[in-house]
Design a protein around this nucleic acid. Structure first.
Lengths: 137, 137
DNA sequence: TTAAGTGCAAATATTTTGCTGTCAC
DNA sequence: GTGACAGCAAAATATTTGCACTTAA
């Protein structure tokens, strides 16, 4: 993400370095709160407000996706860095497990939307909820 | 929605009657706040808490969908009654216009997810954002 | 040097909860 | 009659803003 930001002329501060590393290395979806927590373990001087402002900045540059995972766990938001390919979030509403899913069909659907609605697509978000095999037993 | 609720043994109160009518007749996506506003025009005794509790109840019965429309306008949520068919919300990030889109491809995608992830799907939500033709000019 | 970025405190927005009284069935 | 529901006040949660100070480029 660093190089992408540098190209856009965004200043790389100490705080942003910490936050970018966290987002790049995240192995799961993080909330603003858990991002702050991780950041403060690395550098206690990172402020909560800076987390919000940085997330907002990354979102506006399309480097970060914001999810709410169908509000399984209340109304908080989750963040993940925007990888090269879009994926769908598939969640079990009972156990809360979330899985990522990619599909050629999804790519085609987006193409269809873009053509039919005459829209130049910049963000997409698909979240699917239901009962997983284990929870149906 | 009334008959659907009666079948489930949910009590029909004065307040719920008002709220159900509003949701049934809504020609657009409403926020909790605008639902309250409309309700109080009909019956000023409807309380904000009741709006939240009723929305929650309708959601849990699958009669209502909750959207956030990609947070175009901050972090509020939008509600719409769940029609017979799923649709995708397509929004322009500049002018804020939201359009609904149905597609056979979407139905196939859901089928694929259900099979591949072994998930019994109960909710789906797809939101697509970009620049519409007018805003690209 | 200087404009962009940060920290702090406080405000704002949104939703939830405990408790008591009320009403649909 | 009674258990589900509503109203109220207050708490909890989540996010944003104004302003003065700091720092990357």
């Amino acid at each position: 993400m660093r190089t992408a930001l540098a190209r856009k002329g965004v200043r790389l501060t100490r705080q942003r370095r910490v936050l970018l590393d966290i987002m790049d290395q995240a192995e799961q979806h993080l909330t603003a709160d858990s991002i702050l927590e991780r950041a403060q373990k690395i550098d206690p001087r990172v402020h909560r407000v800076t987390v919000y402002r940085t997330l907002e900045m990354l979102k506006s540059h399309g480097l970060l996706d914001e999810l709410d995972l169908l509000h399984i766990h209340g109304h908080r938001h989750y963040y993940e860095s925007h990888g090269p390919r879009d994926h769908i979030h598939v969640a079990c509403l009972r156990c809360g497990k979330v899985r990522e899913f990619e599909s050629q069909l999804y790519e085609e659907l987006k193409k269809q939307i873009s053509l039919d609605c005459d829209l130049e697509i910049t963000i997409t978000r698909t979240e699917v909820g239901g009962l997983c095999a284990d929870c149906r037993k």
